[in-house]
Amino acid sequence: MPSLKERLNLDQVKRNVLDSQVWRSMFRHGYEDTPRNRVLMVVDNLWLHLHPTKIRRHAIRIRFTWCMGGVTFLLFLYLVVTGVVLMFYYRPVGEYAYADIKYLEFDAPFGMFMRNMHRWAAHAMVIAVWLHMLRVFMTGSYKPPREFNWVIGVLLLTLTLLLSFTGYLLPWDQLAIWAVTVGTNMARATPLLGYEGPFAEMVGVTPRFDARSALLGGTIVGPPTLLRFYVLHCIVVPLIAAILMMVHFWRIRKDGGISGPL
């Protein structure tokens, strides 16, 4: 009587699965360590094909890259995932917003954890993006031919701060509205466009119709502001950031890959 293992012949099962039409339609090749396969691993994979197939030796050194651009992108992905979960529970309405956060914290499964992940990843992303900029500056990687990608990077840095700032209002607690009040009060001092700014009387802007009220949807940080910041935070800014990220990553390749001594 052959044993169960012998009768099953796992190797044969594995071979049958790997050679099946279904499996091979999804995965074109295995993990053989051949130069050809190493190249295919990158070019045959949607997620990995952002990379070149070969890269200059110094570029894989953590001491050179600090890995901070990648960490920023990873944190962005975490923020998208946790942010979508939070959106299931959260209504950007003056009456509900704070209560929804409380519900999220005390009743929703893993609600507190998701909120914590979202908050801390957001803070970490701001720091990571600064460190990425510092690294790119210190290696002179903004120099020709990569000038324009630096410009895109500065825009992405600005968008990261805007994403963090618009999200800051959404818990609708004291910390949120007063931080955003302090931040947006600046807008009323905009030259020409803010009612307390220089030369405002020449343009004729009023507290109700000026740069700040356009941002807030009113004269104070109120429920209309909450809705505006929610839409900016969940749709407008992430979309622009995603588009600029595509340009940023594409340009790295088109500008000759990661920088290095020539």
């Binding site: 130069p35 190493r38 190249v39 990158v42 990995l48 070149p52 197939t53 070969k54 890269i55 030796r57």
Partner: peptide, 9 residues
């Protein structure tokens, strides 16, 4: 240069 897979990935 080195291969991206596995050295970078």
């Amino acid at each position: 240069k080195v291969h991206v897979w596995p050295y970078l990935t």
